[in-house]
Design a protein around this nucleic acid. Sequence first.
RNA 1: GGGCAGAUACCCAAGCGGCCAACGGGGACUGACUGUAAAUCAGUUGGCUUACGCCUUCGCAGGUUCGAAUCCUGCUCUGCCCA
Length: 420
Amino acid sequence: MGLYNCATKNALCEEIMDIETVLSRAVVQVEKEEELRRLLRAGGRDGRPLRVKLGFDPSRPDLTLGHGVVLRKLRQFQDMGHQAVVIVGDWTAQLGDPSGREGARTPLTAAEVRSNAQTYLDQFFTVVDREKSEVRWQSEWFGQFTLADVFQLGYEKTVAQMLKRDDFEKRFARGSEIYISEFLYPLLQGYDSVAVHADVELGGTDQTYNLLVGRELMGARGMTPQCILTMKLIVGLDGAQKMSKSLGNYIMLTADPNDMYGKIMSLPDDAMMAYFEGLTYVPDAELRGFAAGMVDGTANPRDIKMRLAYEIVREFHDLAVAEAAQDAFRRQFQESQWPTEMPAFTLSAAMPIVSLLPAAGLAKSKSEARQLITQGGVYLRPEGSAGPTVRLTDVNAVVPAVAGAELRVGRLKFVRIVTE
RNA sequence: GGGCAGAUACCCAAGCGGCCAACGGGGACUGACUGUAAAUCAGUUGGCUUACGCCUUCGCAGGUUCGAAUCCUGCUCUGCCCA
């Protein structure tokens, strides 16, 4: 067919990708599915590539694997020859979004927004093809907006309609606060679609309402409303809530391979399938096999999870790196060996262990250090990797300044002592 | 505009004059175990202290009291009801 051209380094991609897979893999809902399928088969609209919109909020510049699902989908459209239209929500970010629960109402300055957006885009384009992307800033059009224009937008939806959006409905029912400005966000975001003439917009299921508003605003202006594709958001490491930086259950899109691999291994078993679907090219048939194997007990969830971690690292880094991460994981966690690479801490003179741990970033305070020692979570290799490992149980122990000695707290924190 | 509720540690949520560094749940951390950095079980979870204690916390600012998260006054913020 030749429609799909995998520009990624993953061979599995060539194997499975086609229009139907793009329309179904990790997808929850497609609004105007037939139309979209037809446009994809035709390779565009009126002989031009489709304009596939994805917006982002530059007040949170850090991308997680949760974003990865949507970014990969956008990339798949690009691989079929279409145009990504990336909206930088600089205007709304400068207003300050009140919807964050941590009172993240602080508006950003223009300079902060620009710098955040840059950080964001740098990560963004590790997945999305920069060459086939058009980056647009909201201020291009909202900068011209007058109060009258805002009023006009306000007449496009009623309060009752707004309250149909899931999170508004819940918060209203619960008696939580909802700010007037929050009602503006779907309208502004919808207007973005008008401004850039989007053919398709992508988003997580939490964006469904906003994407639909985009369709309405376009239709009301005599444009062909955009098609919509919403995707299953992956849950975070807690296996329950959606992955987000503020909940602390995230893996950074740019996480280093060992960290990425290990964190995926800490995922609850039943969250794995959504990750496979959204973040790898492992074929559906194989995934069904995994699921069946776990149900009838013929497959070890651990092995499947290792495959998942491997595939995801391969996807966001590459094959060789994924191999290395897998080896490192086996050594460190299955064979309980200490890692070969660890951060250095400069120690120029002997120091009590309770002072050393916080100083080296291995504990938050001396009190915590004492607790860790009492709990048996502190280990020392006075001679480095060649020598024995001792568990420190004496709160009053003093660690001498010996270069090459290694210190470990719990399973994850290590430090190698350096003298100067 | 008027009335009524509420604001507690990372989150939720008890406490309503001393027994409160503050019940309980979640999360996080440590340990044991293990098929995994999963699950399960146990412990820890403000800071300082050679643990006898000391210091700082319960929206903000004052006040009453030997003593306040708990009572009073003002302020800020949120929700509900009436207009």
